[in-house]
Design a binder for these strands. Structure first.
Lengths: 298, 298
DNA sequence: TAAAAATACTCCATAGGTATTTTAT
DNA sequence: ATAAAATACCTATGGAGTATTTTTA
């Protein structure tokens, strides 16, 4: 493919993403005709139509779809070259894009960002908080440098670096504080407050209460651990929260927190990054640092 | 990595390959200063030195080595985009680069090329005959579209498509034609003629005669099956050759060819190609065609 | 008729050429 | 002294802009 340029790929990728010449051109910071021309040139180069032009909508041809996928891979590899160069300087510099799931972010980010910033003053830290599924996709697309999630994620292209295990704690109303601590069977009889669909912590908590597909008798949903704890405080039910969130979430709530009996539910918190990431040595360093921090906190 | 172009990668890849600005420039079809400029620009872009300039020799820095590897991968992915487009036309067109090992090439290529050419008049067939190891490397580098070798090759990036199994035949002097057919143990007592190092067929034949590391008592080497058979004809020893070569190689030689007793040595002949190859459907078609040809020949 | 893509043209940034200088052996 | 890379300078290709036309829902 002599004659093919990065611009061809960049512009075509944008077109496939937006499905609109004008929008794609804007995203690329060029004019619509400029993009049109480059796309046409790309089609000439490949000798086959990439989009079905019906003047009102942009539809990818089969070849176009396939090319878009490959173009994304190539562009992501190219972007990694920049990381490679920055990583070679040894120290962590430039931009670092971190993704964290919502049930970890509020409790870990403050110390993590503070430490990272202190040790690498040059570092431009960008954060993204969303569910595991989205983080994994973003990693694959090269839009994140690493993510902190509950392991395993089981993606062959990603490296998993365990950080620490942590138990789930039972949160219940103060007036239940004297009652015996329930086991998994007991929990199933209570009104259990859970995060909404999409959060892995919801699934982990559920799988503890009902290893089978049997759902707990009564179940309510909230969108953050904070909300759940507040609801418990209001006497609406009980919930499970990870150990690291206890200090923050129960500070302003009138609730009782107890450790559950064995088999104690737990999750493994870890970092994940692309196996191809040139930042691997630095990321391992960060993992080491986090382990140090969590040991100090414990 | 905004601003990075294919040219940067192409030129740098050439420089890393030739280790010489002038030679690399020539290979790229540009002048030496033009290449110098592009390399310098690439270094500025990445913000780090890629080569150690000591005026008399070009040495890659650590970063340079790593970049060269990644550049090769990217360029090879880019080259595949061209195949993708050609493949989308359904029929096999353009250039098809085939690699075949020496113990298959002379017996299979004539019919293969004839059939392929007949069915795809537009096809520009390029051939390369060399040992498996080199073919595999060439495949990985994107310099071949597929190869015909003895399976398995066990490369995770490559797809293996078995074509047929074939036995090894014993070739001995005409004056031994009446003697009983030796087994593996018997073979070890004879003077065995083998291909020189590097040919997988040599290893396959050896492993039959001496499953342990025990080498046969007496061993001589030749550089082609043809030579080996001629040597046998001259009464120098015995040798093993694959079934497909029997017709060709024994036509002009005064030798006796017999099938060996069980466990009969055999090899699996198959095609291999990059799992990412867009030509996969067409290559499967070729595999199908070859199976048909070999059935007819049998 | 209105929104979106394709054409027409103009301009300038830059890739690449030739000629030359610098550098290290 | 010489081979090889860097520098200087010039040219021309083509990428991108604005203005406009074509297309079809």
């Amino acid at each position: 493919m002599i004659g093919l340029t990065m611009k061809h790929l960049r512009y075509f990728e944008a077109l496939s993403r937006y499905g609109h010449f004008g929008r794609a051109a804007e995203a690329c910071g060029i004019s619509q005709p400029a993009l049109s021309l480059q796309i046409k040139e790309l089609e000439d180069l490949l000798g086959a139509p990439l989009i079905e032009r019906s003047a009102r909508q942009v539809r990818m041809s089969g070849l176009g779809e396939e090319l878009a996928v490959r173009a994304r891979q190539i562009l992501s590899s190219v972007d990694e070259l920049g990381d490679l160069a920055r990583a070679s300087s040894g120290t962590l510099t430039g931009r670092l894009r971190i993704g964290v799931i919502p049930t970890i972010a509020p409790y870990m980010l403050p110390t993590l960002v503070k430490e990272l910033g202190a040790r690498n003053p040059e570092l431009d830290i960008r954060l993204r908080e969303t569910v595991t599924q989205t983080l994994i996709r973003n990693l694959g697309e090269g839009r994140l440098d690493f993510a902190v999630v509950a392991l395993p994620v089981s993606e062959t292209a990603l490296h998993e670096e365990p950080l620490f295990d942590e138990e789930f704690m039972l949160v219940r109303s103060l007036k239940d504080a004297d009652k015996p601590v329930p086991n998994a069977d007991g929990l199933r009889e209570m009104r259990l407050l859970l995060l909404e669909e999409g959060h892995c912590f919801r699934d982990q908590a559920l799988s503890f209460c009902s290893p089978t597909t049997l759902a707990p008798r009564d179940l309510m949903e909230g969108s953050s651990l904070s909300t759940l704890v507040q609801m418990v405080g209001a006497g609406i039910g009980v919930t499970l929260i990870p150990e690291m969130s206890v200090a923050t979430e129960t500070r302003s709530a009138e609730v009782s927190v107890v450790r559950l009996p064995a088999p104690r539910p737990k999750r493994t918190v870890g970092m994940v990054w692309r196996k191809s990431s040139p930042l691997a040595p630095q990321l391992n360093g960060i993992a080491h640092m986090i382990r140090g921090l969590s040991r100090k906190a414990a």
